[in-house]
Each structure stands twice: as C-alpha cells, then as structure tokens.
Design a binder for these strands. Structure first.
Length: 274
DNA sequence: CGCATTTGACCCGCGC
DNA sequence: GCGCGGGTCAAATGCG
C-alpha cells in the first residue's frame, strides 16, 4: 500500500466514523424527541380522560334531570312563561337547541310572534354554577356584553338581566341571565343569535388553565345523534361508552384548532432541533 | 367627560 | 277592551 492509498483509506475511515457519530447523535436526538412526543401524547390522553369524566358527570346529571322532568322536554304545548328549570350541573352546561326554520318544540320559538318571522336566531341555554356569595348576574363567556335592562319575573323572585353584545347593532346577539329558582347558585343564561365576530378572549382562554370545562349539548341536531337516542328518562350506567370516547377523540382530531395546536407543538420541536 | 349600568316608564302580545 | 307580564327604551346615575 502506497502513501496516497493509505491516506485515502484513512480519510474514508475518518469520514465514516464522523458519519457514524452523526448518525448516533441523530438517533439519540430522535429518541429524545420520541420521548417528548410520547409525553405530550400522554398529556393529551389525560386531558381527554378528564374531558370524558366531565362529560360523564354532566351526562348523568342531565339524565337525572330528564328523569325527574320528562314532560318539560317533551311537551310541545309548553308555554312561553314556564319557569326556568334548574338542575344541579356543575360548572357550565350549554343546551343548544339549534333552532331552525322547521317546527320546534322550544318555547322561545313558538308561533305567537308573527313580527319575528324573519328572525331565526339560534337559541341556546347555559347553566353556570357560581359561588353562593356571588350575587352578580355575570356569566363569563368570553364576550363583552352591555346590560340594557333588568326585570323581576313572576316565576322567579331573582331578577332577570338583559344583555346585548357590545358590538351591537352589528352583532345582534342577546342574552338573558337569571338565577335558578331551585338552586340560586346556578345561573341560567339564555343566548339568542350567533356572534358575527371572533371570540374576544379566545387567546386568554386557550392559555388559561381549564378550570371550568364547558359541555355543549345539542338536543335537536346533535352530532352525537346516536347518543341523543340513548338519552332516556332512565338512569344508566355512569360509565362512558367506548363509542363515545371514540367519537370524542374523533371530534377532537377533526377540530382544526386542536390539530393545528398539536402539529405546532410537535413540528415546532422538530424544526427547532434541525 | 365618556361610557356602562341602573331603573322606572313604555310597548306589545296574550289570555280572559 | 282590559289587565298582566315579558321585553325594551332612555334618562338618570355612577365610576374610572
């Protein structure tokens, strides 16, 4: 072996050794990254389980309520001025009837308001548990409201507050807030219409700890249409059916915001490494 | 001073 | 037609 071939062989070995070192380092970094992603996935699974638990709790409470008051939900002849029903829901529950142009059993969309034939406002109801000492009729939903009236209604000694979205008249959304008759620690907020502007405190809420989870129950056009059939005036097992977990996971993955956040979390770390 | 809230008056639909 | 009750208006008031 001459001198030049020896140098070439030595260089090859050196280069191969360097590449091997890089490969080992790259593999090590990938393993670390895999561990981080696994940890994040674990957190997400834990979050999902918390969501499932909250859903389970709220669902059981809803079933209990419906078993006690089946006629209020089923009777099409319910009057407009029936009392605001209460329940023992913790945190925040939104019951969204998805009011549409078709005939509805909701008392708010009864046919006795011919002047409002063009108004097809989406009406939803939110139950918020508050501190017993909290006497304000404030529901923190992330939007800014302007109070324009307050009334004491016949069915409830607690006054009902009337709010308009602060972006009115460009945003036609209104809401009524009143304490529940039976449980005055529960605020009943009735929303009319949909906001035509972005959520004002969306950024703050997404970064804030999730202390009061919100569950939306669309009782008319539920995405969980199968589950809406399951809801009967009968107490069922409090366990979450596996199909529900799957559907909740699916709806999470279908959520573009959730997807974007997940992709940003993972790709951000990978890009940062490279 | 400007804006939000309060609160009594007013409007309107419904039942009798 | 009248009274009742929910919903809205707008002047008064309070607050930063």
């Amino acid at each position: 072996m001459d001198c030049s071939s020896w140098i070439n062989t030595s260089l090859d070995l050196n280069i191969n050794s360097h590449r091997f070192h890089e490969d080992v380092q790259s593999t090590f970094e990938l393993e670390m990254e895999l561990k981080r992603v696994s940890a994040e996935n674990k957190k997400l699974v834990e979050m999902l389980s918390v969501v499932c638990e909250n859903y389970n709790s709220l669902r059981s409470q809803l079933m209990e309520y419906m078993s006690k008051n089946p006629e209020k939900e089923l009777s099409p002849s319910s009057k407009k001025r029936k009392s605001e029903s209460s329940n023992n829901n913790n945190n925040l529950i939104e019951i969204n009837n998805g009011n549409s142009e078709s005939s509805s059993t909701d008392e708010e969309s009864s046919c006795k308001k011919p002047r409002e034939e063009t108004i097809k406002a989406k009406i939803s109801r939110v139950y918020v548990r508050t501190e017993a000492s909290d006497t304000s009729l404030i529901v923190k939903d992330g939007y800014q409201w302007r109070k324009y009236g307050q009334k004491v209604t016949r069915d409830n000694p607690c006054p009902r507050a009337y709010f308009k979205c602060s972006f009115a008249p460009s945003c036609p959304v209104k809401k009524k807030v009143q304490r529940s008759v039976e449980d005055q620690s529960v605020l009943v907020a009735t929303y009319e219409g949909e906001h035509n502007h972005p959520h004002q405190s969306q950024m703050e809420e997404t970064s804030a700890p999730c202390s009061a989870p919100t569950v939306t129950l669309d009782l008319v056009k539920s995405k969980f249409s199968d589950e809406s059939k399951i809801i009967k005036p009968k107490i069922e097992s409090p366990e979450v059916p596996p199909i529900l977990v799957q559907q909740m996971a699916t709806s999470l993955t279908m959520d573009p915001n959730f997807k974007a956040a997940l992709v940003a979390a993972i790709s951000g770390r990978l890009v940062h490494k490279n």
